[in-house]
Design a protein around this nucleic acid. Sequence first.
DNA 1: ATATAAACGAGACGGTACGTCCCGTCTTTCG
DNA 2: CGAAAGACGGGACGTACCGTCTCGTTTATAT
Lengths: 201, 201, 201, 201
Amino acid sequence: MSQQHMSPPKRRGRPPNQLAQARILKAAHDILTEDGFGRLTVEAVAARSGVGKPTIYRQWANASELAMAALMSGDPGIIAGGGTSLRSALTGQMRSLIQAFATTRGRQIAMTLAAADPESEFTKAFRNQVILSSREAGRALLLEAAARGELVLQQDLEVLLDMIYGPVFYRLLVGHRSLDTGFADSIVAIALEAVAARADG
Amino acid sequence: MSQQHMSPPKRRGRPPNQLAQARILKAAHDILTEDGFGRLTVEAVAARSGVGKPTIYRQWANASELAMAALMSGDPGIIAGGGTSLRSALTGQMRSLIQAFATTRGRQIAMTLAAADPESEFTKAFRNQVILSSREAGRALLLEAAARGELVLQQDLEVLLDMIYGPVFYRLLVGHRSLDTGFADSIVAIALEAVAARADG
Amino acid sequence: MSQQHMSPPKRRGRPPNQLAQARILKAAHDILTEDGFGRLTVEAVAARSGVGKPTIYRQWANASELAMAALMSGDPGIIAGGGTSLRSALTGQMRSLIQAFATTRGRQIAMTLAAADPESEFTKAFRNQVILSSREAGRALLLEAAARGELVLQQDLEVLLDMIYGPVFYRLLVGHRSLDTGFADSIVAIALEAVAARADG
Amino acid sequence: MSQQHMSPPKRRGRPPNQLAQARILKAAHDILTEDGFGRLTVEAVAARSGVGKPTIYRQWANASELAMAALMSGDPGIIAGGGTSLRSALTGQMRSLIQAFATTRGRQIAMTLAAADPESEFTKAFRNQVILSSREAGRALLLEAAARGELVLQQDLEVLLDMIYGPVFYRLLVGHRSLDTGFADSIVAIALEAVAARADG
DNA sequence: ATATAAACGAGACGGTACGTCCCGTCTTTCG
DNA sequence: CGAAAGACGGGACGTACCGTCTCGTTTATAT
């Protein structure tokens, strides 16, 4: 009869057990926070979640993908802080980004990304959702400000975004200096000076 | 006590085989370029170099350190290109840096760093020699230019350096956009505009 | 097991699909001849026959029973060759038995029997139909000959039968010598000499 | 097992740990007697013996070979009973053979042999040492008796041996009748009557 | 006609064991 | 006495099947 609008595909066999998936992600997340990325093995997750290994492998190709899924599952996403001006909005976002990444989690995210197959679809989703979502939010802030006439953006917006968000991962990966709120503020300050200079010129 | 006259200590027994170290590094380097970081195991290096595993473990604590050693051994170091102005010198350096990292090697360096124990002395040496040497060279260029009066640097030089060199590793790690010479030029351009604006202010 | 002439209970619901059973046995038989006993898994049979696993498990408890069913389904049964004398009849039967077992099938039968639960009803049926049917036919031949006065049988007929048919499975299992028609003839010759000697005494 | 007086080849590396091998065989033997052939997995043996799985796989290709090794390790070998006449010697040997095989061990031996790769060198050794050693002892007894003039052997000695020893494995594998001393006696009686008849003719 | 019910295909489930790879340590013999 | 060779206990890998359990889909009898 009428399929309405949302037609679920209604596959034939027994459907995946949603509870099992949740338990897997919970166990993976716990191992990640308690023991670190190096201990996140498929075997350990299976043992901890009370799930068979094949059930894990049905969904994720290896421990890296599982780690990414676990890191994504608890991630609320970095939302642009609702400031009134570009500077305050951007500063708010950078501060919360850095706060979220300054913990062990940040380094785990970097390690996971480094270990993952860069071509995998899963990796791309992780990249977009966890790594680049803040960058996209920043892009939106900059474009809105440009639309308001606060600044003039030229063709190298991509590079500008990389110069704002790249340093966070740089410090995370290399560890030569700490991540703190002052770092967030300084990045925004320098970036806005560059844009302002350009707007002036 | 007294070392007498003999300058070499002349320890008893068979001396360490210098050639073995070279063969180990050669094998590690070859595996790295042919099979990638994931295949660089102590076992594989021992087999390929015809050296016993204990001989490797005597010098390096694990495969990560060995990878770092291999990556360091062939590294000529990024030297600041000898331009006349700050812009040309910095652009030259960034171009050669990006050229050196755009290949598979760049990602291997990032993976190695992510996998390594961040506290180990070996990792610190690797970080300084391979990752931060370019940053230090950039610092020198900026300080020289400031000494020449080309610009005025204030207290956030560290952040500025991170905004110049961080984006390279950001793209390397995340892979959302390519590394090319245009990227190098744009980074330098934006960075100098920020400094100029500040100098103006 | 089967209620042939009883009024069919006409249970409600969909009746078992006869075709499915045939396809399962066909697939099991094909796998057995193509890939061997070790590859006869319930999973493989289900995949090859296009039948769900539960459909198989509804009829057979495990892969061993399925193997036995497949081996029984194609089995014409060893019938005593219709010779005029005991010697010719027995020789004919032994020859055809050995011919039937000299192929891969013989070893598969031995392996299946070894792997099966010796207490299971299914195993007993297999044993009687596939393994012991020839022995029973031989018993009939001997008893007929005794009735005709050709020989005198005493109380150890069971042992005599084992000495006639046991060597076939012995060579099959151990593989120290080949199964051929000469073997059949020699067994009959020795057995008859033993019986004749006894008849004389 | 050990070649005592042979000049040792003096291989380079660390020699195999004899204790580990012994512990593996002990564990395999215990599992075999306690849980049966079906539970003799490499994993279980490794866990029980406190040995790594690769240490087992270095010596045996799979669980079947390990089972054969365990069955061989505790086997004293069937020695011909020292009777004065052929009949008493053969009867003694058959009785002890049947006594040794009437337990669970006998069926395990049959199952192991059925499951093993018949071409493997290991299987051949097992066959010779465990299965055929009694047959060879019987051959010796018969040949000695022939040399003493007790009987005349003709060309089908191989078949005669199979008719003596085959029935034991036949009953073991098929399980249609029990193994007991009466069975041993009857086999010898019938076999000797066959030989005697032949000698008379 | 319409329930009702059984058997179907599909396929995910919790498990067990597989055989392999590599770890980092150790023990032995050779140079 | 260091270096090579190589076995060791250990841990995780990713795969194959096990036998069980939902599912949604036929296909039949019974209302």
